[in-house]
Simulated assay, not measured.
Amino acid sequence: MRIETDRTTCEGLGMCEAMAPDFFEVGADGTVVVLEEHPGEEHRQDLTAAVDASPVLALRLKG
């Protein structure tokens, strides 16, 4: 599985960071930073919730 981001769409609202702080962080520039691009399958449920929480659809899970 791989986390993909669209940093041009991201508004830095931090919903993903709130849902999965081990994987996302709002950077100094106000957009999301992925802390672990290839997480293990055991994290899929938490990451799906974080991706779904993005109000601007700036995140995707592949694989």
Results as ranks from 00 to 15, higher is better:
residue 1 M to L: 12
residue 2 R to I: 07
residue 2 R to E: 01
residue 2 R to M: 06
residue 4 E to G: 14
residue 6 D to A: 09
residue 6 D to F: 09
residue 7 R to P: 07
residue 7 R to Y: 05
residue 7 R to N: 14
residue 9 T to H: 09
residue 9 T to E: 10
residue 10 C to N: 08
residue 12 G to S: 02
residue 17 E to C: 07
residue 18 A to W: 11
residue 18 A to G: 10
residue 18 A to R: 09
residue 18 A to V: 07
residue 19 M to V: 09
residue 19 M to H: 11
residue 19 M to W: 04
residue 20 A to T: 08
residue 20 A to V: 06
residue 20 A to M: 08
residue 24 F to Y: 12
residue 24 F to H: 03
residue 24 F to N: 02
residue 24 F to M: 04
residue 25 E to F: 03
residue 25 E to H: 11
residue 26 V to N: 03
residue 26 V to E: 05
residue 26 V to I: 15
residue 26 V to S: 00
residue 27 G to M: 01
residue 27 G to R: 06
residue 27 G to E: 07
residue 27 G to V: 00
residue 27 G to L: 01
residue 28 A to P: 12
residue 29 D to R: 00
residue 29 D to P: 00
residue 30 G to S: 08
residue 30 G to R: 04
residue 31 T to L: 02
residue 31 T to H: 12
residue 31 T to W: 08
residue 31 T to Y: 08
residue 31 T to S: 10
residue 32 V to W: 06
residue 33 V to E: 15
residue 34 V to L: 02
residue 34 V to E: 01
residue 35 L to E: 02
residue 35 L to T: 10
residue 35 L to Y: 05
residue 36 E to A: 14
residue 39 P to T: 06
residue 39 P to Q: 06
residue 41 E to G: 11
residue 42 E to R: 15
residue 42 E to Y: 13
residue 43 H to F: 11
residue 44 R to H: 08
residue 44 R to T: 07
residue 44 R to M: 04
residue 46 D to A: 15
residue 47 L to W: 01
residue 49 A to Y: 00
residue 49 A to R: 11
residue 50 A to Y: 02
residue 51 V to R: 13
residue 52 D to M: 03
residue 52 D to H: 01
residue 54 S to Q: 02
residue 54 S to H: 10
residue 56 V to S: 11
residue 56 V to Y: 12
residue 57 L to A: 15
residue 57 L to S: 14
residue 57 L to C: 12
residue 58 A to L: 05
residue 59 L to N: 08
residue 59 L to M: 10
residue 60 R to S: 13
residue 60 R to V: 00
residue 61 L to M: 07
residue 61 L to A: 05
residue 62 K to L: 14
residue 62 K to W: 00
residue 63 G to L: 07
residue 63 G to E: 13
residue 63 G to W: 08
